[in-house]
Structures are given as C-alpha cells and as structure tokens.
Design a protein around this nucleic acid. Sequence first.
DNA 1: GATTTACGCCTTTTT
DNA 2: GGCGTAAATC
Length: 763
Amino acid sequence: MDILENLNQQQRLAVEHGKGPALVLAGAGSGKTRVIAHRIAYLIRNSVCRPENILAVTFTNKAATEMKERVHAILGELRSAEPLISTFHSFCVRLLRQEIHHAGYRRDFSIYDTDDQKRLIRQILKELNDPELEISPREIISRISYAKNHGVTPGQYIKRFPSETAEDVQFIYSKYNSHLKNSNSLDFDDLLLISVAILKEQPDTRRRFSERYRYILVDEYQDTNRPQYELLRLLTAAHNNLFVVGDEDQSIYKFRGADIQNILKFEKDFTGARTIKLEQNYRSSQNILSVAGAVVQNNTERKGKVLWTENDGGDVVTCRYEESPRDEAIWVAGKIQEILELYPNHHLAVLYRANFLSRNFEDVFLEEGIPYAVVGSVAFFGRMEVKDMLAYLRVVFNPDDDIAVLRILNTPPRGIGKTTIELLTRAAIDKGVPIMRMVREKAHDADFPGRASKSLLRFEKFVDKWIGFEQNHSVAQLLETILEDTQYAEMLRKNELASEAENRLANIEELIRAAAESEDRGETVTDFLDRAALSSELDHFDPNTRVALMTIHSAKGLEFEVVFLAGMEEGLFPHTQSMGSSEDLEEERRLCYVGITRAKKRLYVTWTPYRRNYGPEAGSPARVSRFLEEMPRDLIEGLDREIYEPMDQRQRLQTSSHTQPRNRDWQEPTEKNRVSKEPFKQPKSIAELKAYLAQQQKPKTPGTDDSKKGTVLKAGMRVRHDKFGDGIVLSRERRGNDIKLVITFSTAGRKSLIERFAKLKAL
DNA sequence: GATTTACGCCTTTTT
DNA sequence: GGCGTAAATC
C-alpha cells in the first residue's frame, strides 16, 4: 500500500515533512489522526529512522490505541521493534519506573487518582482540625493542581497567588506534598512534573531519552499544558524533530491547565517551524460546517482556518424549544425513534454541557426502550469494590501507600475501629513514618489494648502472606487469595442488596480477568496497576453504540451521523461561571464548535427555559443560548430571536412548519412524534391497562432493538418468568445501574424485578 | 458494628 | 431537589 495514496495535497505535505519542527493546524474532521498515523508509517517505511526512535504522544489511551491500530493497518505487523505510541502520562510513568530514584522515590511508587487525592486532602483537613475552613477539598485539589502546573511550589504559593485563603492553601499544599512523598506516591500532575525535573537535572538521562526518541509526534497539541510543553522541549532540544497536530478552535481543557498559547505561539517557540493547514473537512455537510464556522468566528484568540468540504449542503439545523427538560427529552426520544426506523445503522448522540443533564434522557429512553449508553458516569476502575481490590494490591507492592492502607485497614471490618485508626494515623504523622509501619509496631506493642493489637497482628500476617504469595504467583491468583482471605464477598452480601452485591462481585471477577489478560500479554504487575490508575471510561466506549449520551468534552474526537445538542441555554451553555471573562467565554464557544462539528449529517439543538436550577437564580426562566443566535439565520430553523416569552414562543413554533432543503443521503423523518407526553402511570383498572396496551401496540423495527439482549422489555409487553409464569410489564425504570421492572403475573401477582437477574422472556 | 441522621455538593475532568 | 458520604447514635 502506497502511504501517500489517498492523501490530499496538504496532508501529503505534512506526512512528507523532513526534519525540524512542524505545526499542522488541522480543523475538525480534516484527518489529523490520519496524518500522524501515515507519517509514522512513512518514517518507518522510508527508513528515515528506526521504529523505536519514534515517539507519538496522545492524551487518551483510546487515541493511542487507535493510532497503533492505524499504523499497523498501513504497515502490517512490524517484525522489528515498535514505535512508542502512548499518552503523556503513561510515557512519564514509563520513564519514572526507570529513573525516579533521581528524585528520591522508589520505583514501586503508587499513583494517586482524584479519589485518592480527595481522601488525602480530607485526612489533612481532619488533622488540621480548623473548625471553619471555608474551602472544599475539591477546590483545594484544583488550586494545588493549578499551582503545580504553573511551577509554583508550596513556599511560593502565597506570593504568587495571593488571596484570603492563600495561607491555608499553602499549608495544605505543603502537607499534601510531604504526605505524597512519605507514601512513595505521585499524583497525576507529579508524573509530568517529576519527569520534567529529572530530564532537566540529569543530563545523562536526558541524553539517553532524546537520543532514543529522535522523531516526536504530538496529537491534540492545543490541549498541552506547561509541564507537557517543557517535557517536549527537553526531549527535542537535541534534534528538534517535533511534529505537532492540533486545532486551536478545539482547545477546551483550560480548566485542567491546558494552555492555548502553546499552539498559538508554536512558531515562535520552535524557530524555523513549518506550518501546514488542513482545511478540507471529510466529515460534515456544508451547512453544519458553515454553522460551526459562524459560531467560532466570534472568537479572537485564533489563527483562523476556513473549513470547506466536497460534501452536500445538507439540511439546516433544527432548533427545538420545549417547556420542560422532560419534554425536551421526550421530543428528542421521538426524533431518535423516527431516525432509527429510517436509518437503523446510524450512530446518534445526545451531547450536553454538564453530566446532570443525562438524567431526563436516561429516564425517557428507558421508558421508551431506546437502547443507549452513557459515557462518563462512574468509571470501571473508579467503582468502590474495584478500588478496594486495587488498594490491596497497592499495599502489597508499596506498603508505604498510606491512602491505600487506610482504605483497606478495616474493609471488610476486622476489628480495627475508628479509635485505633486515629491513633495509628496520629503516631505515623508524629514520627513521620508510613502508617503500615505503625501497624506493625502496635501489633507487637504490649501496652496497646489487647483486642486492637490482636486485630492488627492478624492484618499484618495477612499482608505478609500476600507479599510472600506474590513472589511465585500471578496477580490474578493474588487477587483471588485476597478476596478469599478478606471474606470480601461475604461483606458485600451482608451489606448490600443481593443484586447490588452480585453486580459488585461481577466487577471484581472482571478485574481478575483483566489482570490475567494483562499477564498473558507479558505485562508486569506494575504495568497492570499503572493502567488501572491511568484508564478512563472513554477507553471502553463501544463505537457500535446506537445512541450515546455524553458531555461535549467526552465527545471530542468522535463523530455521529446525527447529533442533538441539548440544554442550549444561557447560564448552562455558556455556563454562568464561564461568562465572567472573555477567555472563558471563548472556551465555551470552542466547546460549542466541538459539539457542532461532531455531526456528519444532521444537527438538532434543543432548549428549555425552566430547567431545575438551584442557587440564587432558582426559578427564573433561562434565555436561549447566545451560540444559537450566532448561527446564520438561514441555516437554523425553529429559532425565534425576538420572542423569549415561553408561551409565545411555543405558539409560534407550532404554527411554523418548515420546508427544508433535502439531499440525497438524508431524508428528514416525517412521522409524528410517537412518544406520549404523559409519563407512564400505573394502570388502575384492567380497562386502563388495555387502553395503554392498545396505544403501545406498534411493531418494532430491528433497528430499535438492543442487539445484545434481544428485545427491550417495555411497559405493556407480555413476558414469561421461570417461576412466576406469564405476566405484563407495568413499568420500566432505572434504579442505580440497574433496570427495575414492575410486572403483574397472572398467578403470582405484582412483582418488582431487576431485569438483569430476572431471566425474563418476551412473548 | 450496624443503622440512622446530617451534611455537603451541584461545569467541564483526556490522565 | 436528590444523592452519596460522613458523623452520630443505639
């Protein structure tokens, strides 16, 4: 396969770029991942360098995996070494597992995720015992992170970021850092910072790494933060072969420290850089591009690109006003059903600014039996039971990991109560030693209360057993042993609902399987733990999902035939807290741009003035988002600019039925919405139930079925249960992660069942 | 140690 | 207004 084949002129120029820095400004859908993958293949195929001299960096594991697959697709399996394609963070972990002794840590360090950070901060706050400290752990974490990413140490904090609370933050920041250090643990920011510090201070290490990685490629460069920029500088100083791809219009992670100036100033930072713009879009219709362009044009902080496409004009954007969030969800659900009937293979997405908006959509989709997947609620590795198991592993490998020790010390309960734990923590802090060492000490302390020391001794014996066990067994076996020894399953069965306990146990099983697979791939235990710490839920997003629900942030990099942008209201999008500065507002606008450009064929935008909001503005109706007003008038229908009074707006909308331009491959569904506005009510009589059934009697098309589980059991359907016999589904609703069905059985009467466990057959 | 009550949180969160 | 975790209580 010719690598340059099927590339347009600009893409080809980028792929064939020689030595020295290059900046590829790639608009949405212009094939930027493609360019990186092809360039990697090009470098290898043309023997510009050896595969192992190439480093490609992405932000997500998903992007890294995709990149690897694409390179393999072009080149076939490589016989020799592989190029290193990894995220910033896993690259750093890799570096640190070899080099961290330079920074005074041991190589078996633990990685603290956000949850661990929060626990640590809470512990420090407790220890501080300041009765009225007015900062939340969450805010403290973000301020510490901000300081770290701007190179500000605890000592400099007050001077650099003066505020009323700066003194407190400084104190906590410094405590936080020393706790981490004493626990031989690093947070996500540290992974970058310490790597940078080592590369800066250790010329030998720097030389080895920059000689090894002579061609460095970076995806989504607009999202890099300062430490990432420094890392790249250090790695490329010797050879200057830095090839970055990005889009300043898609920079949406400022709140996480991303610095848009990195991409805006690239040519200044790396002299002699060549700039290539990719402006041909292969994803969306012309109308969608025009709308996106019109919105983002209102920003000043951009280099300016004009996207064009050879695709059809396509439809205009449809705007929909609804009276309430529930109505909004119902309208979207109706549209989705129509679209899926016409186009069973389309991928659709409902995108929103904030996660809480998923609620109404989930409820309605569940009632309607629309198969959907939510991205970004609770990640697998974030689940309580999975974190517990991982904490056990962490303690086995790094007994200094205090947060992990505290997590498992009395989970499951083993007689190490609150007083004992407080005593241990206090003593550990006073002596400046890890908690596990205090556990060992007090376990053999004759002066210590007998009952407590006995429990501690038992715990110590277990830990030692596991440490020994690990020497000649696999992680999967170790996890099995821990599960057995701790009686963890018994704890779950005792404390939780049966269904919930089984669910959690299933997750643990999955973890054990993942560990076994990791081992099969020849990975070490730390590889496994690292991946657990650095993985996110997006990595598990199944691209075959028919209807996806997620935030716009999560949707970056994805595409769908049809996109619904929900909650297009002032105050929510742009968010109130982002309307203060023009910088923040521009970021919101870029976010909107990202949302719009996810759509290939059709874009719907919806809004409602009466979204339940708390706080000072509770109750007052919201206006339509300014971003919709920035869309060209002739490219959006259903938006009435002059009228904001809800009833008026509604009447106008109902009287105006539009004719739309059509194109060849998209035909707007014309059927009436089939979702009833009334939420399903329990029928009071047989007659009512019959009436409801009649209303529900409509043939289902294959496209709306959940392919995995067969038919979706909706209200009104007849089902058969092994024990209870035949019955009729009365309602279907979410309960936690499960789906609860209420069913009346002809013999057994009314029962509530969890769908996953009920083994129901549709009749 | 288990159960109840109270409180804190509520924008996005690639790692 | 709703939810999940943490303190309070038995």
